[in-house]
Lab assay of single mutants.
Amino acid sequence: RKWEEIAERLREEFNINPEEAREAVEKAGGNEEEARRIVKKRL
C-alpha cells in the first residue's frame, strides 16, 4: 500500500516510530506533503 511507503519514508527521515508515521499519513489522507507538515509540527 502506498500509505505504508510514505509512512516508512517519514519514519526514516524524521526518526519517528512507525505508529507516529502511520498516524500522520492517515490524518493527511495519504498526502505525503501534508503528512510531512503534520510530523514537523509534532517535533
Rank of each mutant, 00 (worst) to 15 (best):
K40L: 15
A35S: 04
R9G: 06
E5M: 10
G30K: 02
G30S: 02
R11I: 14
E8C: 10
R37S: 09
L43P: 10
G29K: 11
A21T: 02
E20P: 03
G29I: 08
V25W: 03
E4N: 10
A7M: 13
E20F: 14
F14A: 02
I6Q: 04
I38H: 06
V25K: 00
R9N: 06
V39A: 04
A24V: 10
K40F: 14
I38V: 07
E32T: 04
I6R: 02
E19W: 12
E26I: 10
E32P: 07
E4S: 11
R9Y: 04
E26P: 00
E23S: 10
E13G: 03
R1H: 13
I6N: 01
R9I: 08
G30E: 02
R22G: 04
K2D: 13
I38C: 07
E26R: 09
I6T: 04
R22A: 11
A21N: 00
L10H: 00
E32H: 10
A21D: 00
K27M: 15
R36S: 03
N17M: 11
R11E: 10
G29D: 14
F14Y: 09
E32R: 04
R36I: 10
L10E: 00
G29L: 12
V25H: 01
V25Y: 03
N17L: 14
K40E: 15
E26F: 11
A28Y: 02
R22Q: 10
E13A: 07
I16S: 02
R37H: 09
K40H: 15
N15S: 11
G30D: 02
R42N: 15
E26S: 10
E23I: 08
N15H: 14
R1N: 14
R22V: 08
E8Y: 12
L43F: 07
E33A: 14
R9T: 06
A24G: 02
R42G: 15
A24D: 03
I6A: 03
I6W: 02
R37A: 10
R11A: 10
K41E: 15
V25G: 01
P18Q: 14
R36A: 04
R42P: 06
R22W: 15
K41H: 10
P18H: 14
R42W: 15
R42I: 15
K40S: 09
E26T: 09
L10S: 00
A24E: 02
E33D: 13
N15V: 04
W3A: 05
F14S: 02
K27H: 13
A21L: 03
E34T: 08
N17C: 05
K41Q: 10
E26K: 09
I16K: 00
A35C: 02
W3M: 06
I16Y: 02
L10Q: 00
E19C: 03
G29E: 11
P18F: 14
R37M: 10
I38W: 10
R42L: 15
E26A: 12
R1M: 13
K27G: 08
E12F: 13
P18I: 15
E32S: 05
I38G: 03
N31K: 07
K27Q: 15
R37E: 15
K2M: 14
E34P: 01
A7P: 01
G30L: 03
V25N: 00
A21H: 01
R42F: 15
R37Q: 12
L10F: 02
E12M: 15
E34F: 07
K27A: 15
E34R: 09
E19T: 11
P18M: 15
L10W: 01
I38A: 08
E19F: 11
L43D: 03
R42T: 15
E19Y: 11
K41F: 07
R9K: 11
A7D: 01
R42S: 15
K27Y: 14
K41A: 12
A28I: 01
R36F: 06
G30H: 03
F14W: 04
E4C: 05
K2C: 04
W3I: 05
E4I: 10
L43Y: 06
K2W: 12
R42H: 15
I16V: 08
L43A: 04
N31G: 03
E23Y: 11
V25E: 01
E13S: 05
R42Y: 15
I16H: 01
I38M: 07
K41I: 07
R1I: 13
E34A: 08
I16R: 01
A28Q: 02
A28D: 00
R36Y: 05
P18E: 14
P18V: 14
R22T: 09
V39R: 01
E8S: 10
K2R: 13
E5R: 07
W3P: 05
R1Q: 13
E20V: 09
A35Y: 01
E32V: 08
R37L: 10
N17H: 13
E34L: 12
R1P: 10
A7G: 04
R1L: 13
N31R: 07
A21W: 02
A28N: 02
K40R: 11
N17Q: 11
V25I: 10
E8H: 12
R36M: 05
W3V: 04
V25A: 04
E34M: 11
A28M: 03
A28L: 01
R22H: 08
R9D: 05
I6V: 08
R1V: 12
A7H: 03
E13N: 04
E32G: 03
W3Q: 04
E5Q: 11
P18K: 12
R37P: 00
E32K: 04
R11G: 08
L43H: 05
P18G: 12
E23H: 09
E34D: 09
E20K: 04
E8V: 10
N15W: 07
A35P: 00
E12D: 12
K2Y: 12
E19Q: 11
G30N: 03
N15D: 14
R36H: 04
E32F: 10
E20G: 04
A24Y: 05
V39T: 05
W3R: 05
A35W: 00
E13W: 06
L10A: 00
E34Y: 10
E32L: 08
K41W: 07
G30M: 03
V39L: 05
E4H: 13
I16Q: 02
R36C: 02
E26Q: 11
